[in-house]
Simulated scan of single mutants.
Amino acid sequence: MGVQEAPYSLRLGHEAMQKIRVLAAKDKRSINMQLCLAVETYLEQYEKEHGKIPVESEE
């Protein structure tokens, strides 16, 4: 996962949060880890369809 960024407060609707809870419990993950996996999966899929997302280097 790399270096952790500063915490970010995420606001989700009630139904979306309930669905995340169900998936996290099903896969024995924390809600945070389930959300991280969802974001990483989305980014991978986006890059497959649209190409690499350019970001500034941390060096």
Score class of each variant (00 low, 15 high):
residue 57 S to M: 14
residue 41 T to H: 09
residue 29 R to C: 06
residue 26 K to M: 09
residue 10 L to A: 08
residue 39 V to C: 08
residue 21 R to W: 07
residue 19 K to H: 04
residue 4 Q to G: 05
residue 29 R to N: 08
residue 48 K to W: 06
residue 52 K to P: 09
residue 36 C to A: 10
residue 36 C to F: 06
residue 57 S to A: 14
residue 21 R to Q: 10
residue 7 P to K: 02
residue 8 Y to G: 10
residue 24 A to S: 08
residue 19 K to Q: 15
residue 46 Y to T: 09
residue 20 I to T: 06
residue 24 A to N: 04
residue 44 E to L: 14
residue 35 L to N: 08
residue 31 I to D: 03
residue 20 I to Q: 07
residue 46 Y to F: 14
residue 58 E to W: 13
residue 35 L to I: 14
residue 14 H to R: 04
residue 7 P to V: 06
residue 43 L to W: 08
residue 34 Q to S: 04
residue 36 C to H: 11
residue 46 Y to H: 13
residue 19 K to I: 14
residue 41 T to G: 01
residue 24 A to H: 02
residue 41 T to R: 04
residue 8 Y to C: 00
residue 57 S to K: 14
residue 12 L to V: 03
residue 17 M to K: 15
residue 30 S to C: 04
residue 43 L to F: 09
residue 21 R to K: 10
residue 31 I to T: 05
residue 54 P to C: 05
residue 36 C to G: 01
residue 39 V to S: 03
residue 59 E to T: 11
residue 53 I to S: 02
residue 18 Q to N: 12
residue 49 E to K: 02
residue 43 L to Y: 08
residue 6 A to L: 13
residue 35 L to C: 04
residue 12 L to K: 00
residue 21 R to A: 12
residue 40 E to I: 08
residue 22 V to E: 13
residue 54 P to R: 09
residue 47 E to G: 03
residue 7 P to I: 02
residue 14 H to V: 10
residue 53 I to H: 07
residue 50 H to W: 09
residue 47 E to N: 03
residue 48 K to Y: 00
residue 49 E to S: 05
residue 13 G to Y: 01
residue 29 R to A: 00
residue 2 G to S: 06
residue 17 M to D: 06
residue 53 I to V: 11
residue 52 K to S: 07
residue 1 M to I: 12
residue 13 G to T: 06
residue 25 A to R: 04
residue 34 Q to M: 07
residue 35 L to R: 04
residue 28 K to M: 09
residue 54 P to M: 02
residue 52 K to C: 02
residue 45 Q to R: 11
residue 2 G to D: 01
residue 37 L to P: 05
residue 40 E to H: 09
residue 27 D to R: 14
residue 43 L to D: 06
residue 7 P to A: 01
residue 40 E to G: 05
residue 48 K to S: 04
residue 35 L to W: 01
residue 29 R to V: 01
residue 26 K to H: 13
